[in-house]
Amino acid sequence: MKKSLLSLVFVAVFGLTATASTPIDGEKKEVKVSESTVTWKGYKVTGSHYGSINLKSGHLEMNGKNLTGGEFVVDMTSITVNDLEAGKGKEKLEGHLQSADFFGVENNPTSKLVFTSVKSMNNNSYTVTGNLTIKGITKPVTLVVSMFENKATATIKIDRTKFDIKYGSGSFFDDLGDKAIYDDFDLVVDLAL
């Protein structure tokens, strides 16, 4: 009797715990934007720069424990440079990145990623295809999303010239020498759910 009662208590406790942490079918898991980070890194012939951008909103769509979709909006007006100190070109570079030469944030204050296809690679990782919109231009991108409990991470390489960001690109301008900026930049996204 004691053994049966103990077994029932064990099943009830762990059954409720599993149910509480398992998303229901079709659940949208809102991203905690204040606890999430989006970092960028851009490359030039003479080095690189890196910084961050604030996530404005986002959610992942779940079917049970499986990722099925998602959508994210980034506040492009929040772009910052983290590898330079104030007064050492930081403000100038941030202003240039916000200008029409790069992201044109006055007319395009947000960028957006909408998942269009999600394929499971294993228990925690997914190959995701989505539509990325930057400067009002939408192009398909592919990335890998890894999920662990209440966190999700992704790294994506983006060709800026596909979004009409051609400033300093050796693909479009000759004789840039060591002032050339590479077309690809990286985004690393760490989401808190």
Rank of each mutant, 00 (worst) to 15 (best):
M1Y: 08
K2P: 06
S4D: 07
S4E: 11
L6N: 08
L8V: 15
L8C: 12
L8E: 02
V9W: 09
F10E: 03
V11W: 05
A12N: 05
A12D: 10
A12Y: 13
A12E: 10
V13H: 10
T19K: 13
A20T: 14
T22A: 09
P23F: 00
P23S: 04
D25A: 15
K28M: 14
K29F: 00
E30P: 04
E30Y: 03
K32W: 00
K32Q: 13
V33N: 08
E35I: 06
E35L: 11
S36N: 10
T37I: 09
T37P: 00
V38L: 15
T39E: 15
T39Y: 02
W40A: 02
K41H: 04
G42T: 10
Y43Q: 11
Y43P: 00
K44C: 09
S48L: 12
S48H: 13
Y50E: 14
Y50M: 09
Y50D: 14
S52L: 01
L55Y: 06
S57R: 09
H59P: 00
L60H: 08
E61S: 15
E61Y: 01
N63H: 03
G64K: 07
K65R: 11
N66R: 09
L67Y: 01
V73L: 11
V73R: 12
V74S: 00
V74T: 01
D75N: 09
T77P: 01
I79K: 05
I79W: 15
T80F: 05
T80R: 10
V81S: 04
V81G: 01
D83T: 00
D83L: 03
A86R: 03
K88L: 13
K88P: 04
G89R: 14
E91H: 09
E91Q: 13
E91I: 13
K92F: 08
K92W: 02
L93H: 10
E94S: 12
E94M: 03
G95I: 01
H96G: 09
F102R: 07
F103L: 02
E106D: 14
N107Q: 12
P109W: 06
T110Q: 05
L113I: 13
N122H: 07
N123R: 11
N123S: 15
Y126R: 13
Y126Q: 11
Y126I: 11
Y126W: 11
Y126M: 12
T127G: 04
T127H: 10
V128T: 13
L132A: 08
I134H: 06
I134C: 08
K135T: 11
T138K: 13
T142K: 15
L143Q: 14
V145A: 14
F148I: 09
E149K: 10
E149A: 10
E149W: 08
A152W: 02
A154W: 03
A154N: 07
A154H: 03
A154E: 06
T155P: 01
I156S: 10
K157Y: 01
I158S: 07
D159Q: 12
D159C: 02
R160D: 04
K162F: 06
F163M: 04
Y167N: 06
G170H: 04
G170Q: 06
G170F: 05
S171W: 00
F172H: 10
F173A: 12
F173P: 06
D175P: 02
D175C: 02
L176E: 05
G177V: 07
D178L: 00
D178W: 00
K179V: 04
A180M: 05
I181R: 05
I181C: 01
Y182P: 01
D184T: 13
F185D: 00
D186C: 00
L187G: 01
D190A: 15
L191G: 02
L191T: 03
L191H: 09
